[in-house]
């Protein structure tokens, strides 16, 4: 039988979006009071929770401390109930270690770590429900959490996955698209300056297509940044209303 048709002739994707459209965003900043910063983000059916502690003194082995900037410590995990099959996910499996490392690299590029020498910033991200684009949703959620914690960053870090189907780049892939044999690329971008914080692609793609795909990823990331900006401003408005009273 024929597989799924990822992009119809009329230009609609499986879930009814057009090629460049992102999924619906829903976000809340500061759901937890105890942490220094926190955020909850839904991008379609992918839901992530990010929590930030710090900057604080080095915990554990002090020898890891850097004399000129802060150390960023990231931990990524997936809830047992996050996928269709309930699965216990032990800490430190290969996939989540790799993801943690990617997050760390992304935020080292964005957070102004030189302001906090010899200290540590912890970022914990948990995927509550997974429906494609886990990495990008984590980055976006963590950005909101870092902002919530009041840690200075160079810019928002916005991430998005894009895939390539029938010579057309698709933005913000859902799980069905990701698993449908599409070559996908994840990009984390500092949108104002256009610097790339992280770029990851595991699939094969002909180099001729790379440029169009990057172009699409950049546009999508800029779209994400608009949404995040709106979320932060909305949050600030609400917070200032409260403090004024």
């Amino acid at each position: 039988m024929a597989g799924l048709e990822l992009l119809s002739d009329q230009g609609y994707r499986l879930d009814g979006r057009k090629a460049t459209e992102l999924r619906k965003f829903q976000a809340r900043m500061g759901p937890f009071a105890q942490a220094d910063g926190s955020a909850y983000l839904e991008q379609g059916n992918t839901k992530a929770l990010a929590v930030v502690y710090g900057p604080h003194e080095m915990r554990g082995s002090r020898s890891r401390a850097l004399h000129d900037r802060a150390v960023i410590n990231c931990q990524y995990s997936m809830a047992t109930f996050s996928t269709a099959e309930r699965k216990r996910r032990p800490h430190g499996d290969r996939k989540s270690t790799e993801m943690s490392l990617h997050l760390k690299q992304t935020f080292e590029a964005a957070v102004m770590t030189q302001l906090y020498p010899r200290s540590q910033i912890d970022i914990y991200v948990k995927i509550l429900q997974s429906d494609g684009g886990n990495y990008s949703v984590c980055v976006n959620a963590a950005t909101l959490a870092v902002i919530d914690a009041g840690i200075p960053m160079r810019d928002y870090v916005c991430a998005c996955t894009v895939g390539f189907v029938d010579e057309t780049p698709l933005a913000d892939l859902c799980y069905a698209e990701e698993s449908g044999g599409v070559s996908s690329l994840a990009l984390a971008l500092l949108p104002r300056g256009g610097q790339i914080a992280l770029l990851q692609m595991d699939a094969r793609l002909h180099q001729d297509h790379l440029e169009t795909l990057m172009e699409a990823a950049m546009t999508a990331c800029k779209g994400v940044s608009k949404v995040l900006d709106e979320v932060v401003r909305q949050h600030l408005r609400e917070a200032s209303m409260l403090t004024r009273e």
Partner: peptide, 10 residues
């Protein structure tokens, strides 16, 4: 397996 998919109406 339970499959959940989004469906946008335009």
């Amino acid at each position: 397996m339970k499959v959940v998919r989004e469906h946008y109406l335009r």
